[in-house]
Design a binder for these strands. Sequence first.
DNA 1: AATGAATGAGAGTTCATTCAT
DNA 2: CATGAATGAACTCTCATTCAT
Lengths: 235, 235, 235, 235
Amino acid sequence: MSPAKLPPTAKTQPPIRHERRKDARPGELLAAALDLFVEKGFAATRAEEVARRAGVSKGTLFLYFASKEELFKAVVRENISGGFSQWNAQFDAFDGSTPDMLRHCMALWWQRQGNAKVSGITKLMLGEGKNFPELALFYQQEVIQPAHLLIRRILQRGVDRGEFAPLDMKYAVFTVLAPMIFLQLLVHSNNACYDPAEATELVPEEYLASQLQILLAGLCLRPATPVTNKGNHCL
Amino acid sequence: MSPAKLPPTAKTQPPIRHERRKDARPGELLAAALDLFVEKGFAATRAEEVARRAGVSKGTLFLYFASKEELFKAVVRENISGGFSQWNAQFDAFDGSTPDMLRHCMALWWQRQGNAKVSGITKLMLGEGKNFPELALFYQQEVIQPAHLLIRRILQRGVDRGEFAPLDMKYAVFTVLAPMIFLQLLVHSNNACYDPAEATELVPEEYLASQLQILLAGLCLRPATPVTNKGNHCL
Amino acid sequence: MSPAKLPPTAKTQPPIRHERRKDARPGELLAAALDLFVEKGFAATRAEEVARRAGVSKGTLFLYFASKEELFKAVVRENISGGFSQWNAQFDAFDGSTPDMLRHCMALWWQRQGNAKVSGITKLMLGEGKNFPELALFYQQEVIQPAHLLIRRILQRGVDRGEFAPLDMKYAVFTVLAPMIFLQLLVHSNNACYDPAEATELVPEEYLASQLQILLAGLCLRPATPVTNKGNHCL
Amino acid sequence: MSPAKLPPTAKTQPPIRHERRKDARPGELLAAALDLFVEKGFAATRAEEVARRAGVSKGTLFLYFASKEELFKAVVRENISGGFSQWNAQFDAFDGSTPDMLRHCMALWWQRQGNAKVSGITKLMLGEGKNFPELALFYQQEVIQPAHLLIRRILQRGVDRGEFAPLDMKYAVFTVLAPMIFLQLLVHSNNACYDPAEATELVPEEYLASQLQILLAGLCLRPATPVTNKGNHCL
DNA sequence: AATGAATGAGAGTTCATTCAT
DNA sequence: CATGAATGAACTCTCATTCAT
């Protein structure tokens, strides 16, 4: 998110901004890595190409990141997990209704994450997670869990404030997450799902809005188990 | 005999026996390949491991399939594209209402494809399609297009019989496909999306049913463009 | 030469000639092998292709010939070394002058060997001999030595009969051999030596005749050392 | 660190040191390649052995040359085609008679090319050209054509200056080339043509001289078609 | 006798990672 | 700090040869 969170030093720099700052290196590498990981996946991305795209040599990459896996982790931290404290801060500061909060979060998420290159990381982990257990574990801890927690907090807030019916949390969290994940997949897989010819025109914002509406219809007020979709006549 | 250290001079001393001999080999290889492709993806699956899992040697694999890509294509043909004629036959034979047909198809699909290893192929193509253009093209032609066509036929039947409102087909096809794709993803990505701990309990059949209900609510009777989700208040 | 010299059995056959005789197998294999060895060289010729071209299976090839090297040896025996007894018989029977004998032999050689596929074997040995020491040795013994011996006998006859000046045999033999080898090379290397465009029109018979003339001019009568080309003003 | 048994997980424990670092590498590799190509031919030369002989690892070879075929082309450029501009320059500078020029060129050629390892390349192309069409084409363009052109220029000079009779160029070029090619073959095929025992003592310089003399006798002054050896009584 | 399925060593090539400069 | 030359394990695919049938 913020491109100002660089691992190494971050001292006051000469104001000459047109000069390639040495301290910008890791940032450039992370940007290049994000591009390529999203484009080709983890295994198929070659370290050398990341370096080249960042304008440095192969050796330099390994100067900043101990391995390709560490590079990936840094990309995830920089672009995803780093944002959760902000998300949580906004949660604490928000004082509207919980349905509004959900709508707001979803919209924000789409702007910041879903609609950005980062969302390719989700697809990547889905596809390659099993092959790189260490990365999968890391992603679990750094992304999945915080995300689940955050969603859980939001939903719990709704329950606590009497806005939502009591929920089977495991299920409910997932129901919120599902359309988000799906949307990311869509955005990054046009070639595999559609004829380029009839390239789809699904409007993500509308898709999200409609999904939320279903969701909220299920969550709000009514008791029982709407989220689990059992006997959910409204849907 | 020749003391030449050159290419074709063989020096096999203890040749470990031929295991057996069969016409079941292609089938065994295809099964092993399906397993591994689904488990690891295309690039990360090693030809030799496919062979070993099928109980044969590396060379034997290439006796039956000219290359790893051909092996993959054969897996797709065997497990997916081969089934479309059956699907189409069932379409022709069905004489209930189109909503029933959709429900029936979805249920059948889940049994036969979605709930089977094959569904991992969808995930695979989503993740690696870009890296293997020839496979992507093949998959387009052998799977995506027939699937789109079939769904389109079903929807058109509904329209023709006055069961469905007129549809923007591109959109509508996709709306049917989306939950199917998503479900396949879920099934094959537990590790990347959930704590193994709180391994989800989403019941696929119920998920599909609920999605269908939404869908049908949108498709049936009412005119307008509900499928495109624009101004769709009901949803 | 004579296609009737098959390793295995050679009993009286049913006169039905349109039936593939079992005993013809080795002959068919040898013919196919000669074709392919000449076309592609030894190493690049695949056993399976030889078998296929002979209309049998890979296994059958190894039933008749213990290895690819043995197959090659058989080809050489069948097509080259087998002929030396005939050559020598003709030598013994000939009663003209030695220059005439040389001319006669050369012409015969061209008809029988130089102008036939076999001559590709010479090129093959030249190119691959070093890589297959056992074959090189075999070829030495079966072809080179007998050929040298034969030429030597002819030249010696000329000397003994007072037709030729005394000769440095090593040199002289070689001088006879050289144009023959060269011609074989030519015949089998059109693509590497000439533009296909200006494909040469060298007439082999004329080339040989002229070379012989030079040669005989050097050999006949005059003392000195014309064959060694030292101070040979006439040439 | 990751216990993944998957593709890019390196497990190098005792990495044997970098030997050294240089810009001499390409040269060393080319030298090693020339040696081995000449010794074994193209197909039978293993990339790894080239590397080892140059004192580097397999990977390093491919750092400098994209493929074995490119390596071969580089060898040819380095050792053969690169020299034609020099040849042509010498042609332009020469101001003696054309017969002298021919003698001079031949002598020079022997020193520089014929008598060097490079001449093995000619043999190699003769033997393997058909199996590597791309290399054959390259050799055609880079070597055969320039060589033909050069010889043609020389002969044409003789004709233009009234030293040579009018010539059928196609034939004449070839007549000059033939002994050169033959000599190269000889030099690189001792084992296949002679007993190592009676290893020949042909003196290449003398062979060339005598061939030239024949040639010049045919070319000079006398009209008609001496080069084609038709009715050439002098020879 | 004949088949052709099966084997497995080995070839060319790639790429994450190291280290001398 | 930065470089990029060097490494070598790993991968796909080939083919002479064997052997169950």
